[in-house]
Design a protein around this nucleic acid. Sequence first.
DNA 1: ATGGCTACGATCCGTAGA
Length: 257
Amino acid sequence: MPRLKIATWNVNSIRQRLGHVRDWLQAEQPDVLALQEIKCQTADFPAAEFEALGYHCAVDGQRAYNGVALLSRLSPVDVVSGLTDFTDEQKRVLAASYDGVRVFDLYVPNGQSVGADKYAYKLRWLEALRETLRTALARHDRIAVVGDFNIAPEDRDVHDPDAWRGQVLCSDAERERLQALLALGFVDVFRRFEQPENSFSWWDYRAAAFRRNRGLRIDLVLASPALAAACTASGIDRAPRAREQPSDHAPVWARFG
DNA sequence: ATGGCTACGATCCGTAGA
C-alpha cells in the first residue's frame, strides 16, 4: 500500500481560485487533489501553473459550468471521464489510477430543489454512479471516491437539521442513494476518526454563514474496504475558506498507508 | 424578512449554485 494523501476541493472557478489552490498545494503537499467546478474548458485549465509545482493534471472541463480535474504527484494511469452507460453533457466525473489506487473525482448534481427536473436528474445520476462503482469494485481493490457529493449524509452534518429537513441536499431520497453507495462497502472515512462537533465543508456566501459556522458537510472521501483499512487520518481544512475571495467549499483530505 | 453572495457569459440582467 503506497502512502497517499488524497484531497478534494470544490474551487468554484479555477481561474478565480488559482492563488488559493497553489498556496494550498505548497502548504499541504497532497499526493492527489481532486477539483470540482473548475468552470473552464479543458484547454483553458492552468495546467502549466501546477506542473511548475510538480503536479500532473488530468482535466475534463466545459465552458462556464461544472468541470473536474485531478492534480497528482504521480502520473495518472487509465484516465476515464464520465459514468458508464449514462450519457451526460455535463462534465462531472473523472477517474484515474495512481500506484494501484483508483480515484474517482465527482461533482454530484446539486438538484436545485426537491421535485425539480434537476432533482430527478440528480437521483438518476446517483443510480448510474452506483452501477459505475459496483463495476469498479470488481476490478480494483483500492478505490477512493472523492468530491462534492451535494448530500449531507446525516443530521449531524447539518448546522440546522430542522430547517434543512426534507430540503435538497438533505432529503431522504438523496440520503438513501448515498447509503446505497456505502452498502457497496465504501466508508465515509471522515467519521472513522474523532472530529470536532459541527464539522462542515460548505458555507453559503450569504448572511455571514462561515463566521457563524452555519454550514453543511457535503464534500466526502469514500474508501473501498481495502483502502479504508489503510486510512490513518482525515480532516477538513477551514483555513482557505477564511481567506479573501474564497471558494464556498473547504478542502477535505484523508491519509492512507 | 424566503433574502442575503459569487461566478459565469451575456451585458448592466439572467442562470446557477447549495
